[in-house]
Simulated assay, not measured.
Amino acid sequence: MPITPRDFQLYKLALSLFFLAVVNFAAHSKNNAALVIDGSTGVKPLIEVLAQHYLESASSPNIQIGQGLSPKKRIAALKNNKIDIAMASHGFDVSQLAQLNLRVHPFAKVAVVMGVNHTVKVDSISEQQLCATYSGAITNWQQLGGADIAIAPFIRPADEVDSEVFLAKVSCFAQLTLAKNVQIKKKSGQMARAIANERGAIGMTTLVRVSQSDNKIAPIGINGILPTTDNVLNNTYGLTRNLYLITSDKPKERVKSFLRFVRSQQGAEVIKANHAVPLIVNSSTRLTP
Rank of each mutant, 00 (worst) to 15 (best):
residue 214 D to R: 15
residue 260 R to L: 02
residue 237 Y to Q: 00
residue 282 N to M: 13
residue 255 V to S: 06
residue 211 S to K: 12
residue 40 S to V: 04
residue 201 A to C: 07
residue 104 V to N: 06
residue 268 A to V: 04
residue 220 I to Y: 09
residue 123 D to V: 12
residue 210 V to D: 15
residue 268 A to H: 00
residue 97 L to R: 06
residue 247 T to G: 13
residue 230 D to G: 01
residue 160 E to I: 02
residue 41 T to P: 09
residue 141 W to A: 07
residue 18 F to E: 02
residue 221 G to L: 10
residue 20 L to Y: 01
residue 140 N to G: 12
residue 177 T to S: 03
residue 186 K to Y: 14
residue 155 I to E: 04
residue 276 A to R: 04
residue 152 A to K: 12
residue 38 D to I: 11
residue 211 S to P: 10
residue 22 V to S: 06
residue 218 A to G: 13
residue 161 V to L: 04
residue 119 T to L: 01
residue 46 L to H: 03
residue 4 T to M: 07
residue 70 S to I: 00
residue 136 G to E: 02
residue 22 V to C: 08
residue 100 L to W: 09
residue 31 N to M: 13
residue 116 V to S: 03
residue 284 S to R: 04
residue 227 P to G: 02
residue 97 L to F: 07
residue 160 E to N: 14
residue 264 S to T: 05
residue 146 G to N: 02
residue 131 C to V: 03
residue 146 G to V: 04
residue 175 Q to M: 11
residue 215 N to E: 13
residue 143 Q to W: 10
residue 179 A to R: 00
residue 103 R to T: 03
residue 35 L to F: 07
residue 79 K to A: 07
residue 129 Q to F: 06
residue 44 K to V: 08
residue 209 R to N: 11
residue 239 L to T: 04
residue 249 D to H: 15
residue 113 V to H: 02
residue 283 S to P: 06
residue 137 A to S: 15
residue 30 K to Q: 10
residue 280 I to D: 04
residue 217 I to S: 07
residue 160 E to S: 11
residue 133 T to M: 12
residue 32 N to C: 10
